Amino acid sequence: SFLRTQFPGLEKTGEFAERYLYSDSNSCLFKLGLLCEDIVNKMFDFDNIAMPYQMKDTLVNKIRLLENEEYITEDLARIMHRLRLGGNEARHEGTDSLQKAKLLLPQAYSLCEWFMQVYGDYTYQPKEYHLPAEQPEAAFVETAKDKAEEARLRKQDNEKAQQAVPVPHKERSQANLQAANKRPKTEAETRCLIDEQLRQVGWEADTTFLRYSKGCRPAKGHNLAIAEWPTDKVPGNEEKGYADYALFIGTELVGFIEAKKWDTDISSVISCQCKDYARCEKMRCGIFAGTVAGF
């Protein structure tokens, strides 16, 4: 709703995404992909950005150009690509995943907050997002009137962007960086980032499904990063510790990864928490704690 005064088209698309969440997650993902596409196109319109002649005018190329030219940061580009891929899967493959929709909705919300700060109300302050509560009422279905209203408002948003006076690139880039640095990152978004980085270097990682609590276990022939791996009780602590990720090459445990905020003292995490997990895991798996590295 914070978008309503500046970008009512985005607000309407976001509203429909939320209303579809539980009854039709495929439509929710489609709307989130549409939301991302609208934001990217508006950025091009606001600053009169032109695609190089050698690049196809596609959403993926537009996002790459925005990142390369420092209109967006790497983490924002990653959110855009997640929303783009989720929308494509919903459109072409009929993907129906409530878990994915729950994961992407808060990230789409955060992207919209950033967009508001850079292109709308510069004084807007981010607010914590809460997923909509599941309602027992009948499933939401867009009527012809709903679709017409959304189309009208989206057109209104587009006209506003096209009529805006372009902001110099350096000024826009600085505004982007300032807003991006203030943008709160949820634990789920952080996990998405770590999953992607682990996959890039050869690990099978997906904190949504490759979790100990979901039945994921080490397997021969697989390099698994298993999320929320339980360890025995840490000395002096009555509760069991859960490592954010346990890394297994086949059935051999080779390391732990702990996900922390940027301002956390990493050396203390390695010295204390990761080493504690390693010592306690020794009792469970018979692995010498000194061979288990904490990352």
Rank of each mutant, 00 (worst) to 15 (best):
L83E: 00
L83R: 00
R84G: 01
L85A: 12
L85H: 07
G87F: 07
N88S: 13
N88K: 08
E89I: 03
E89F: 08
A90K: 10
R91M: 12
H92I: 10
H92W: 02
E93N: 15
E93C: 08
E93R: 15
E93A: 13
E93W: 10
G94E: 07
G94W: 07
G94P: 09
G94Y: 10
T95N: 11
T95Q: 14
T95S: 10
D96Q: 12
D96F: 10
S97Q: 07
L98Q: 08
L98M: 04
L98I: 11
Q99E: 15
Q99H: 12
Q99N: 12
Q99P: 02
Q99A: 14
Q99L: 14
K100D: 03
K100Q: 15
K100H: 13
K102G: 07
K102P: 00
K102S: 10
K102H: 10
L103A: 12
L104E: 10
L105Q: 09
L105W: 01
L105F: 10
Q107G: 07
Q107V: 04
Q107R: 06
A108G: 08
A108S: 09
A108V: 01
Y109E: 02
S110A: 15
S110P: 00
L111I: 00
L111S: 00
L111G: 08
C112E: 02
E113Y: 01
E113T: 01
W114E: 02
W114M: 09
F115W: 02
F115E: 03
F115K: 05
M116A: 01
Q117C: 06
Y119K: 04
Y119Q: 01
G120L: 04
G120C: 11
G120F: 04
D121A: 07
D121H: 06
Y122M: 05
Y122S: 15
Y122D: 13
Y124A: 05
Y124N: 04
Q125C: 03
Q125A: 08
Q125N: 05
Q125E: 11
Q125D: 04
P126F: 09
P126K: 05
P126C: 09
K127S: 11
K127V: 08
E128F: 14
Y129H: 06
H130G: 03
H130E: 12
H130R: 15
H130F: 11
H130N: 14
P132N: 01
P132E: 00
A133G: 15
E134M: 14
E134V: 00
Q135P: 07
Q135A: 08
P136F: 11
P136K: 10
P136S: 12
E137G: 01
E137H: 03
A138N: 13
F140W: 04
V141R: 12
E142K: 13
E142H: 03
E142R: 11
E142L: 06
T143L: 04
T143S: 15
T143D: 02
K145A: 14
K145F: 13
K145M: 09
D146R: 06
D146Y: 08
K147V: 05
K147R: 14
A148W: 04
A148Y: 08
E150P: 01
E150T: 05
A151K: 15
A151M: 09
R152C: 02
L153A: 03
L153F: 00
L153H: 01
L153W: 01
R154L: 14
